[in-house]
Design a protein around this nucleic acid. Sequence first.
RNA 1: GGCCCGGUCGCCUAGUGGUCUAGGGCGUCUCCCUUUCAAGGAGAAGGUCACGGGUUCGAAUCCCGUCCGGGCUACCA
Length: 476
Amino acid sequence: MTVRVRFAPSPTGELHIGSVRTILYNYLFAKQNGGALVLRIEDTDQARLDPRALPSIYDGLHWLGIGWDEGPREGGPYGPYVQSERLPLYREHAQRLVDQGDAYFCFCSKERLDQLRAQQQARKELTRYDRFCRRIEPALAAERAARDPHVVRLKVPDAGVVAIDDLVHGKVEWQLATIEDQVLLKSDGFPTYHLAVVVDDHLMEVTHIIRGEEWLASVPKHILVYRAFGWDVPPMAHVPLVLGPDGKKLSKRHGATRVTEFREQGHLPEALVNYLALVGWAPGTEDEVFSLDDLIARWRIEQVQKAGGKWDVERLRWFGGVWMRRLSEDELARRLDGVLPPEWDRSVVRAAIPVIRERMEVLTQARDLIAFLFTDVAPEAPLLVAKKRTAEETRAALARATSALGALPAFGHAQVEDALKAVAMDLGWKQGDLNMPVRVAVTGTKVGPPLYESIELLGRERALARLERAETVLAG
RNA sequence: GGCCCGGUCGCCUAGUGGUCUAGGGCGUCUCCCUUUCAAGGAGAAGGUCACGGGUUCGAAUCCCGUCCGGGCUACCA
């Protein structure tokens, strides 16, 4: 039997980083088993639809390099892959359960339900549906259903136990007495998640259900539905949640959570995938830098952690640095293309890559690192003055550096280095004491890429002009 | 409240009865390298394995209890 797994986002918002981790695990499982990955859109909550959701799922996963085999746009033999286009299917199946006596029509109003809940709360009882409509004669209920608004509820047995052998948690079981008569079909004709997942996973021949742990609690309801239909329950794996720093499910109030945001912040997709895979999984060896292909080869569902893992941007950034240095210079130049202002000369950018690459964790850092090559700098006098020297001494030193650089027959970083070393020697200054004012004069800041290379990149003309301007500032 | 899941350094984790004086990575700190910042190298600090009982010659690893955290508890997914 070929493996078929799915990821089933509900299009209620942009692609979330926590969903990506679950999708990634599904992807890895499918790939390493030569199976298929299916994208199914669970848009059964019509009130919460967000038009940005779909594009962000496609763009985000494409950016990350995670591909799938069947879905709304790519089609496939089990379509449609959007639940709102499968309504008749759910209706038929719900009807079948009613006909079999495993489900029933419920006509209770929102008001009655609210009131019931309030009363139960006041009495400190369990808040759950009182099965009021379960007592209605089936024939009468069917008749009413033809004209009155209604939902379909699952008839949960009063007693008994259901259990699964979860791939990550092991055996988990529930007393049916603690489960309420779940709504399966809503009054607007849409199914609830609980009906739709079961029907679709079965019809789409999904062989393994890998999803977030937030779904673990609804497993008994699903088992009951499978049972009522006489279907087999596929193996399930409830993977741990990605948590915020406070230990609660990662959400927007913890900061960036949308894939789009990380992309905009300049994170490398390789780093995101690598980092994310390691929240909730470890190979058991001391390796930790993994490409998507490495992960396909090494990830194992049995090694997935039970406990949730906290999101750690610092660690993500560290992986960013690692991957930054693994990218070829040409590739890095391509990645930078969309990040840097279009007017910045790409040949200059390309030339600067060797010196900025190991200083970057995210692409956007390149902007600050090489801005001095494209925009004028106007350093203030206090910043220019060398350590333990006066403004005048610094000015004089800069003047000597200026003429030394001006006299150079060739203007490569090696020559620049020789010249500045000679000046420092003459002056009797420590190299760093001379280089700092030169750096500030030429780049405008105290930190940046190596000085000699920076000066070479800038070119003689502009370097000398900036040095002269710094002298003026110091003289002034 | 109820049901369910979880609990190893600040964070991600290795570890499935003895080789654990609990290993690695991130972060932090120190030193080296050095024209700044990085990168790189060498080191350090940091965990009574939530706690308490057992079982066992021996427990982070097995059992029970407690505590703490989380998820779910909608005609949301």
